[in-house]
Design a binder for these strands. Sequence first.
RNA 1: GCCGGAGUGGCGAAAUGGCAGACGCACAGGACUUAAAAUCCUGGGUCCGUAACAGGACGUGCGGGUUCGAGUCCCGCCUCCGGCACCA
Length: 893
Amino acid sequence: MLRWNSIPTMPEKPYDHRQIELKWHARWENADFYKADEDSARPKFYVLEMLPYPSGTLHIGHIRNYSIGDALARYKWMRGYNVLHPMGWDAFGLPAEQYAIRTGQHPRKTTEANIAVFKRQIKALGFSYDWSREIDTTAPGYFKWTQWIFLKLYNSWFNPATGKAEPIETLPCPPECAGSPDALRQHRDGKRLAYVTEAPVWWCEELGTVLANEEVVEGRSEVGGFPVTRRPMRQWMLRITAYAERLLRGLEQIDWSDSLKEMQRNWIGRSDGAEVQFRLADAPSDIPEADRAILVFTTRPDTLFGATYMVLSPEHKLVDLITTPEQRAAVADYKAEVARKSDLERTELARQKTGVFTGAHAVNPVNNEKIPIWIADYVLASYGTGAIMAVPGHDTRDLEFARKFNLPVRLVVQAPGGADSTGFVGDGVSVNSGFLSGLPTPEAKTKINAWLEEKGLGRATVNFKLRDWLFSRQRYWGEPFPILWKPAPGGAFRHEAIPESALPLQPPDLTDFKPAATGEPPLARAKDWVCLPDGSRRETNTMPQWAGSCWYYLRFTDARNDAQFCGAGPERYWMGTAPGQAAGKPGVDLYVGGIEHAVLHLLYSRFWHNVLFDLGYVSTPEPFFKLVNQGLILGEDGQKMSKSRGNVINPDDILREYGADALRLYEMFMGPLEMVKPWSTKGVEGVYRFLGRVWRLFVDEKSETEFEQHQTAHGQDDPESLARVELSRAIRDVPPTPTQLKTLHACIKKVTEDLDGFRFNTAISALMVFVNDAITWETKPAAVMREFLVLLHPFAPHLAEELRSKMAGPNAAATIAYEPWPAFDPAVLAEDTIEMPVQVNGKLRDKIIVPIGAPEADIRAAALASEKARQFMEGKPVKKVIIVPRRLVNIVV
RNA sequence: GCCGGAGUGGCGAAAUGGCAGACGCACAGGACUUAAAAUCCUGGGUCCGUAACAGGACGUGCGGGUUCGAGUCCCGCCUCCGGCACCA
């Protein structure tokens, strides 16, 4: 056993992980084993883990993420694939900037320091990254291309006719714009995929910036949990809504978990319905013709006969026009009250419905009935048309409102089974609905839609919950927009793209990073940077953190290209669309990361990718073909890890005690990869013991003593000491016995199948089963042991490399990484006889041994002859004997 | 409320409709040791039963069902985790 004499209190280690890891890190570093190469004839495999934001220290959860990717990368190399497995840093973001605000230290400094720590920790874990492709999203050579992609968005529009993004120049010029450059310009600006708008946005006081819908959770910022409020501001938006349908449909072609796809579907929120026009009744003469109708969106046009009132959102533009003098004060009060409420309050105490009558009426187009128009904050200005027809008979919210304000309820859908139809919201049969009566709901919908269309009163339409992406932030530490504001006649300023040749646009140096309460970005302080000699000014907002991570997987295919964001050749090769590559699975072959980015990063990057695809810059419609989400690791107490709970596990401590192999192995062994699991340091100890058993399986005990003595004499880190360790004498070049072969091939089969199915926990248990068996063998055939090391390598690469180097002899390759993966031979596992359980009435009573190919009659006879089984059949006639070949026998009495 | 996912020993878990609990942790007993650590061996769902070995009954959140046979399939519930939530 190893004894670390210098530290007498430390328990003895099963093996010296430290020396082994140091040795192999140096070799991997120097030899470029994991460098990816586009020229290979082998099939490609692109495996990618979500880029980390380099914060203070690596989290134990990152390691689960990377261990999964690394095991697959190593496995695929051994299966003969040409693997691309890169790593980088998504390093723009709030924490570095918050730190800068507190301390005055430039975020660049903090970021560099954090990257250094992350890199050291990741390297200490021995992951197989191609470091020559390392990316830092904050490096000018990288964000140059982020800005370039922004310009593509800015200079494109979405053509509904082709369903694609196209250069803005192809936008047809409407007749009224002909000959007026100003009008044309306005027309174009209204269609760009990146556009400026003055709209209510989420403002976070504490962070001093606006946030996207996706970054606001229950009225608070996703980062930090600070309250957010609605506030109108001039902001940059990306027209992701144009891609709602594409983003929805694209999900069908990719291999993601159902739950993740469902989260994206919910967020996009497609809903099929109809728009219906309700004309105002007795409209005052001062209302222009265009405003004499209210457009509503409904998913239930079939219930039109049940509409007994209408509701506008308090912010609806018609409210002030239609309100009668008697109701004016009440309406004004209500609007003021709603405006005072924060959105948090609006959702939190949303239980009691509120609203007021406007005094105005509209006409229900199907029956010419006059119905009252109310305003209420349960109707949202931002969804649909901001107005509804209320059908209290068949809508929960309308019913609640109608009951509170004594509005009539009319039933127009009969619930199936004759149940009470009040408040029934499902599909039934139309009643009391004129020409719709008697029709089942789906047919009633079709019929009324046709009727509305014919009368010019409405049409079938689709609505989405997805909103455009608020893309600007009032921060310093982000990509500056490549946009200038040029003075125009009348003192206005107009946005204009800076030329591509001027990229990257670098941010100015600042010393004060504090946000302003006014919402003016910190960049505005850099007057020299902002104001250009010709009187134009730079845009002072920056892009959100998500910008850089939207496209990094493309940059990895050609990370050092100065002329393009990535070259078409490498892009096609690694995304799988180059000539001669197997089609059908375009994109990154495996993307591993946490579920927390379901509607942020993963939606945003799909959107950008779609645009780049339309414009011909990438060759696949979707970025990530296969995606898996590793589950969160909780603290040992089963709670989320956090400093305040004091249950955070520091990877450095685990690494020092148990080594990289044990840490990685444990994180893959703890359970199915997508499951949330509590941490257990005892569990790490368990797999560490397993690795120690592997070590002892291979090495000679006496030579270990020499190893220790050498260490004592020359210091713990002397690289020569490992050379003293010799291979166990039990490992010999002898042919394996059939049992030994069986043990090996059972292991090959299980590990191979489980790796293909991402079942790391059971793959590792199969390795353990092999070791538990092999440890009892007096003679260990070298061929068997060598193959076992190949199976071990994806999970514990350091130990596998070291032991293999002991076995391989001087002429072997320098690494195990390209050894061929062993093939499983079913013939080896074939048995002559098989043990079959015998059940009586489904209960296990005995076991019999029968030859493998025995005819059913023989098995039946053997089972019926069983003494133990007969005790339970006494006196009862045998009704039936079920024989499941190779499985079991069940006697029914 | 709606949409996902999950409920199996003391714990993490495993099980193409066919022997429930592989593998690991923790625990207990033993070997080695002056002793400990490490290592090795053995044990283990619960209950009844036996001097012991036998032997038996029950057992995968709860209640039904399908089946020769259900952790697995179907119906109805309960609990936990994640997401969405006045989205018309």
